[in-house]
């Protein structure tokens, strides 16, 4: 599950470390806004929850089980900033106290499993709830479903750039995307069901679905009643989240663009996934669940990817347009 030392070259490891540090720094400020002085205990307990829940195995398909990555779940339950922080701390603790995940690969692990899953999960979630109001559970499913393969593809991309083994990026991306789409279904189902379960009992705890308060009633010992005071209005979705949402949408689109590009560059993508069936079975490993072997694809020649850059540029333009439109709409509302 966790990338060890030696998977990526030093330059990539350090660059990812810088990205992760910057992401965590942004989230430290953001989490303060989400949770105020509750940040340390709340994020600490949620991190412990994520750690524990990653040990819950769930069946994915015949004979296969996976466990939650938890990025999308964390984003939906406690908000994106706190979500990234919790994932980062879980990975930090796993790396330093349990020797799980290399210290030099910490940046890569936090970027892939913390920042990307949370960002993508949150982006998709906001997108879906924006299009279909109140569909929190459906949005949670889609958010988690998308976050897993995107994280896997980000890994592939990163490995292509700075991995220590040469890979055929198109084939590997198709295989990784396919396998993780399956795992993503499991992640999606359990995330949606978990969010649904929390929503049923403590709707106020679901970050993305706050509100609903009744006026107070005063009652004497005999039961005579009177209504007083209006409760404080539920806080609106905060404006500070907009950059996060836009970032999430942007990253999703960029990565989606990459997927389609790589998939088309490798027409036998589906066959490749089928050949990876061996991988899928081995992903059933109860301790290591969704990642392990399934993640790291295969080794091959060095790919040529000029068209990839054009694709990314195109997607960025689209993402920018969407972001601009969303911004305009947001301002109109204010």
């Amino acid at each position: 599950m966790h990338v060890p030392d030696g998977f990526f070259n030093a330059v990539t490891s350090i660059s990812a470390g810088v990205v992760a540090a910057a992401g965590v720094a942004v989230c430290l400020r953001g989490a303060r806004r989400e949770l105020d002085d509750r940040t340390a205990p709340m994020a600490g307990l949620v991190a412990a929850f994520i750690f524990a829940v990653q040990m819950l195995n769930f069946p994915v398909a015949a004979g296969t089980s996976g466990h939650l990555l938890g990025g999308a779940l964390a984003a939906i339950l406690v908000g994106p900033y706190t979500g990234v922080l919790c994932m980062a701390v879980v990975l930090l603790v796993q790396g330093v106290f349990f020797a799980d995940g290399g210290l030099t690969a910490l940046g890569i692990n936090i970027t892939l499993m913390g920042v990307v899953t949370v960002l993508v999960g949150w982006g998709v979630f906001k997108l879906v709830t924006g299009l279909a109001k109140g569909q929190v559970v459906v949005a949670a499913f889609l958010a988690a479903l998308v976050s897993v393969p995107v994280s896997a593809l980000a890994f592939t991309l990163l490995f292509w750039i700075g991995g220590t083994a040469p890979i055929e990026v198109g084939t590997v991306a198709a295989a990784m995307g396919g396998v993780h789409l399956l795992i993503g279904i499991g992640e999606g189902l359990i995330t949606a069901a978990t969010v649904g379960a929390v929503l049923a009992v403590r709707p106020d705890l679901v970050y993305a679905a706050r509100g609903l308060a009744k006026p107070l009633v005063l009652r004497g010992a005999e039961g005579a009643g009177a209504t007083v005071g209006e409760p404080e209005p539920a806080p609106e979705a905060r404006g500070a989240l907009r950059p996060f949402l836009l970032g999430g949408v942007g990253v999703t689109l960029v990565l989606a663009g990459l997927v389609s590009f790589f998939a088309s560059s490798s027409p036998d993508g589906l066959e490749a996934v089928a050949e990876e069936k061996g991988f899928i079975d081995q992903a059933a490993d109860h301790l290591f669940g969704s990642w392990t072997l399934a993640d790291y694809g295969e080794v091959g020649g060095i790919p040529v990817g000029v068209a990839g850059v054009i694709g990314v540029g195109l997607v960025l333009v689209v993402a920018g347009a969407v972001a601009y439109a969303a911004r305009g709409r947001g301002q109109a509302k204010v």
Partner: peptide, 30 residues
């Protein structure tokens, strides 16, 4: 016993109540 898809709701309810317990404990600690 977690064997197939149908049991996902059960596991999820566990995860859900674990989250509520964790979150509420966080609030109490705070």
């Amino acid at each position: 016993e977690a064997r197939n898809f149908r049991q996902i709701p059960v596991v999820a309810r566990s995860a859900g109540s674990l989250f509520i317990r964790s979150y509420e404990r966080g609030e109490r600690v705070h």
